[in-house]
Simulated scan of single mutants.
Amino acid sequence: MLLLAGTGSASAHVKWFCAYDVAGQPRGLEQVLCADFEWLCALAIGCLMFGCLAEGTPLGTALLNALDRVTSRIRTDTELLVRCTLGFFLVSLWGLGGIILTPELKTDAAWISWLQLAMAACLIWRRAMPLTGLGIVFLFAYATSQYGVFHLADYPVFLGVAAYLILRGLDIEPYGVRPLDIVRWAAAVTLMWASVEKWAYPQWTHPLLAAKPGMTMGASPELFMQAAGVIEFTLAFALIWTPLVRRAAAIILAAIFISAVFEFGKVDAVGHSGIIVVLLGIAADDARRAVRVRDVVAAPAWYGGALASFLALYYLGHEVLFGTLSSLPVI
């Protein structure tokens, strides 16, 4: 919890505030998977298992009931909150100009700003929401053509939001899958990928830590970035786990993103507004299922599998696209 208290500023997207080079050589896996990293992951797995155990007790049921009561208004108005927040986001992008969906994706095409304003207008009418969703998909594809697949891998949450708008506007649930679940999975993937970037390129954040040394709470920049990445990965993984665990993770993540706004101002407020409202919707979601023993027992295996998968996807994907690794990493 002490580590968590100091990670708010690190949750500002480093590409918005510091120089970066996506095509540059990432830190070797043999450096990432050090003893500190392993201890942090073991602690994270212990917390995840404890959360699952607590959820199956009367205390867990009481916490879920309390969350249901406190978040009832958010749950009732989740769609309205998403529409209003995305409207604010898109109008802000139109006002700033020269941006495709997120602050570091710059463009000289003037029509993109006006398209984003039109997409905001479509959110006024529920039946027009799918047009905004299709607009987000189009802009995501356009940005991918300009900046590459690897760069846009930071933002699959946009596709999740687009799916939410399209499905809610058409009032359908394909194969019984709720639109909120789709955007929840997209948010989890986005944050797990972003946490790997903290381990692969910790040097991107060094200027930020030098300017704001209080962020590290006395820890070395190396340990701080490892901890920030593990915390973000664990909370993101928790978004796809059991109901109480994912709701608690959504609340903590939303608090971290909101706290970062006070450090970094309106750029961070605009850039993260979409994921913040999604996290609030997840925190208010009252869907439940019985927690089984296998949820607790399987947590380490699923967590480890997710961690290994994202590390492999990041490093192998980087090698395929940029060819920066001269040989397979030694672990």
Rank of each mutant, 00 (worst) to 15 (best):
I124S: 01
R126V: 06
A128H: 03
A128W: 03
P130R: 05
L131G: 06
T132K: 00
G133C: 07
L134I: 02
G135C: 02
G135R: 10
G135Q: 12
I136Q: 11
I136H: 05
L139H: 06
L139R: 01
A141Y: 04
A141E: 12
A141K: 06
A141D: 09
Y142Q: 10
T144R: 00
T144I: 09
T144V: 02
S145L: 15
Q146K: 08
Y147L: 13
Y147S: 05
G148F: 00
F150G: 11
F150D: 13
H151R: 15
H151C: 14
A153L: 15
A153G: 10
A153C: 14
D154R: 11
D154I: 07
Y155E: 12
G160D: 00
G160C: 08
G160H: 11
V161R: 02
V161F: 09
V161E: 00
Y164P: 02
L165C: 00
I166T: 04
R168D: 07
G169F: 03
D171P: 07
P174K: 08
P174H: 06
P174G: 12
P174M: 04
P174V: 04
Y175T: 15
V177S: 01
V177H: 07
R178Q: 04
R178H: 12
P179N: 00
L180Y: 01
I182T: 00
V183H: 06
V183T: 05
R184K: 12
R184L: 09
R184Q: 10
A186C: 01
A187L: 13
A188F: 03
V189W: 04
T190L: 07
T190C: 01
M192G: 05
M192Y: 04
M192N: 02
S195C: 02
S195Y: 05
E197D: 12
K198A: 08
K198W: 06
A200W: 06
A200I: 10
A200R: 03
A200L: 03
Y201M: 10
P202Q: 04
Q203G: 06
T205L: 15
L209A: 00
K212W: 13
K212G: 05
G214Y: 11
T216P: 08
G218Q: 06
A219K: 15
A219H: 14
E222V: 13
E222N: 10
E222W: 14
L223S: 08
F224W: 03
F224M: 06
M225G: 07
Q226I: 15
A227R: 09
A228R: 04
G229D: 01
